Simulated assay, not measured.
Amino acid sequence: MVSYRYLGNSGFKVSEITYGNWITHASQVGNEQAIATVRRALDLGITSFDTADTYANTAAEEVLRDALKGQRRESLEIFTKVYFPIGPKGPNDTGLSRKHVMDGIHGSLRRLGTDYVDLFQAHRYDYETPLEETMQAFADIVRQGKALYIGVSEWTAEQLRAGHALARELRFPLVSNQPQYSMLYRVIEGKVVPTSEELGISQIVWSPMAQGVLSGKYKPGQPVPAGSRATDEKSGADFIKRLLREEVLEAVQRLVPVAEQAGLTMPQLAIAWVLQNPNVSAALVGASRPEQLDDTVKASGVTLDADTLAAIDEALLPVAETDPEKTYESSPRHRLTD
C-alpha cells in the first residue's frame, strides 16, 4: 500500500503517490476508462487526487467527481487549482484576482460535487494582481470552510517567501508548492527547495517521469512508439518534444542497468528518485490504463542507496536541466486569455 507524508508543517497527510488527471481525463481517455483507473488507484491505496479547473476546460473535474462517487469523502484528499483561462476565457476568467479566485472555488466545488477541497492551489503566480488581494481571497475561502489548506504551483523562492509572510499575517495555512521535478529537470533544488524547507512548505511534484521519457520507452535513433504521448497532440506532444533529443535518450538508456540492479522498473526508479527528496510530499502520477498504476505504486516506500543515486547522477546530470533561474520562467508575465 502507498505510504503517507505530511504536507508542509501541517498535520495534514497525503498519499506520497498522488493521482493527477492532467491530460488524461476528458481528453486522452474516455470517461469509463478514466473512472476505472481512479477506482484502481483507490484499490492500490492512493487517496489523494489532484486536478484543476483548466484541465479539459473544467471537464476533468467532473470526470473526477464521477470516478469518486460513493467514496467516503473524509477518506479522500482532493486538490484543485485556479489561474489559467476557463469557460469562454473572458477578461476575468483567468488570473488570481479576487473575482476569479472566488469564482474558481465555487465552480470547482460545484463540478467536483463536494462542499470543500482539501487543497486549493494558485496554478501560477499572477503578476497583474496584487499579492495581497490574492492572499486575502484565499484567507476568506479557508475561513468559509471551502478549502482546508492553500498551496501554489511553480512559484519562485521569492514569491513563496512573500506569500508565506502574508499567509502568516492572515492566519491561514500555506503548505505546498507544485513544481515540475524529475531526474531530468532539477531547477527547484537551488532556491525553491531550501526556501521551502525554511518556511515549512512541501513540494507536490508533477512530471516525475519527464512526460514518460524516463520510462525508457523512447529509444535513441528510433521512431517514437505508436500511441505514445509524443504522437498525441491532446497529450502534450509539444511539451515532450524538447526531451526527445538524442543525447537525452541515450543518457536515459544508461539507467536501465541501474534500475535492474535496484530491483525496480524504470518508472519506479524515476518516482522513487523524486521521493528521496525530503521536501517532496507527493509525486503526481497519471495513467491512461488502470494496470499502469500497478507498477508505479511500487515506488512508494523505496529507499535508493548512495551508489544508486550516484549512478543516476553520473548518467543524467550532463543532460539534466539544473539552472535555478528557470524557475522565473514558469509564470507568464501577463495573464493568458486563450
Rank of each mutant, 00 (worst) to 15 (best):
M102A: 06
Q33Y: 13
Q203A: 15
Q136W: 05
P130H: 09
A262W: 01
L214M: 09
V302R: 12
L317H: 10
A230R: 03
A41V: 09
S207G: 05
A259K: 05
T54H: 13
Y55P: 00
T337Y: 09
R124M: 09
A320Y: 10
S153Q: 06
S97V: 07
R245T: 14
S288K: 08
E233N: 12
H334C: 04
R335D: 05
T303E: 13
D305M: 05
L264G: 00
Q268E: 12
G113L: 02
G236C: 12
G45K: 10
P290L: 11
G200P: 04
E291T: 08
Q292I: 08
L336N: 11
V213L: 06
A139H: 11
L42W: 11
V252H: 02
R171N: 14
N57K: 14
S202M: 12
R111M: 02
H164A: 11
A210D: 13
V297R: 02
T54K: 06
T18V: 13
T296L: 06
E189W: 12
I78G: 01
V256L: 10
A315F: 11
A251P: 05
S207M: 06
P223L: 14
E247R: 12
T265M: 05
G90M: 05
R111F: 06
V280H: 02
E132M: 12
Q276K: 11
G263L: 06
D115V: 12
L166I: 15
L160Q: 11
E189A: 11
R186A: 08
V193D: 01
E325V: 13
Y55L: 05
V82E: 01
T303W: 11
G87N: 14
T94I: 09
D295S: 14
A230N: 11
S288P: 07
K89M: 14
D53E: 07
F79W: 07
S27H: 05
P130F: 11
H100Y: 07
A310Y: 02
A122S: 15
T134F: 01
R5K: 15
S153Y: 06
A237W: 04
I312R: 10
L68P: 02
I86W: 03
G301N: 08
E154I: 08
S300K: 02
E128L: 11
Y218K: 02
I78S: 01
T58L: 04
T337P: 01
A60W: 06
S331Q: 09
G263E: 04
V274M: 03
N9Y: 09
R229L: 13
L166M: 10
V258F: 03
Y116H: 15
R289G: 01
N31C: 14
S97T: 15
Y181S: 06
Q180W: 00
V258W: 03
K99D: 08
Q121E: 13
L112N: 03
G45H: 07
L184V: 10
P130A: 05
